Simulated scan of single mutants.
Amino acid sequence: MTQIHEKPAEFVEALAKGIAILEAFDAANPEMTLSEVARRVGLTPAAARRSLMTLETLGYIGRRDKRFHLRPKLMALGSAFYFSARIDEILQEDLRGIVEQFGDASSVGTLDGNDVIYVAHHSVQRARRAAAVPGARYPAYATSMGRVLLAGLSDDNLDAYLRTCQPKPLTSRTCTDPAALRDEIMGARTNGYAITVDQLDYGITALAVPVRDPGGAVVAALNTSGYTGMVTPELLLKERLPALREAASHIAYQLTRYPTLRSVLSG
């Protein structure tokens, strides 16, 4: 869910509550009762009911019996972002080029709180695995893109992340030790890339590199991924790293031409 670090005087609590309710629905909670929504978001039943009724009236939430669910109209909000930032025009070309050259999948993501959120994705993979569709979000510590993005933080912000992050073992190979995780992130900062094997889900081996704005700050990450066992870290570094860095450089150049996308990625 969206993390709020400081509330300005103009902060609208009612709007924040409504957005929190929309974010509460996910694959594990596709339908919820009023009490379940209230408990998950941390609201009183009365406050949750007012927000749910408003969202239902606007067409973003539906109801079946006493259980609420999201409605397709919500996708229009994501589409507005996708088209206003010109994602297809600016990012998809490079992702398609990587996939056409190497197969598998490629994504662009950016940091949102303690998570990496996927902004663009292209894939020829069909097997069931952790979804990487635009809008998907995963713990930064468990993904190659997340580690590259964390490596781009200032030392103070990285220290704050490591103090507050509570890594959970998503697989038996997930790095959950804070000291070891710091070493991985610092290695990504030194090397200019990060590799993960079965960290987020079994069967995912991924390589990511940073995308920098004109000032050199890391604003996004670009990855390529394949099936563990069919690709190895050594193979990714030898065959894909140069092409991935070239694509990241091209995306960085595009950011100088499209300031809206640059603003979107940099927050």
Rank of each mutant, 00 (worst) to 15 (best):
L207A: 05
K168V: 12
S144A: 14
M145H: 02
A252T: 03
A136C: 13
A208G: 12
Y141R: 02
N114C: 13
L207R: 05
P139H: 02
L52T: 09
A140V: 05
G109A: 09
L111K: 01
L55H: 00
S123H: 08
L15C: 08
T232K: 02
A46V: 12
A217G: 07
P72Q: 09
T196P: 15
A27D: 15
M230K: 10
A76G: 15
V219P: 06
Y138P: 10
V12G: 08
V37L: 00
G59I: 00
P242S: 14
R182W: 13
R71Y: 03
V197D: 13
T57L: 09
D94V: 00
E13K: 09
Q166A: 10
G135Y: 08
T256N: 03
R189D: 09
L236D: 00
V119K: 04
L15A: 13
P30S: 08
G135R: 11
P8Y: 13
Q101P: 07
D156Q: 13
Y258I: 14
T256K: 02
H121C: 08
E234Q: 05
A120M: 02
A130G: 08
S172Q: 14
S35H: 15
L222A: 00
T196C: 10
T224H: 14
I204S: 05
I117G: 14
A131Y: 06
H5R: 05
M145P: 08
T260I: 12
H121K: 03
S107E: 03
V231D: 04
Y227S: 14
A85C: 09
F102M: 02
I204G: 07
E10L: 14
G59V: 01
K238R: 12
S107T: 04
L236H: 02
S172M: 14
L244V: 08
A130Y: 08
E10S: 13
G18R: 01
A120S: 12
A252F: 01
L74D: 04
P169M: 11
K238T: 11
L43Y: 01
P134F: 05
N223M: 06
G78I: 10
T260E: 06
L70G: 07
G215V: 12
S154F: 02
Y138W: 13
Q125L: 10
H122G: 12
R40W: 01
L34Y: 06
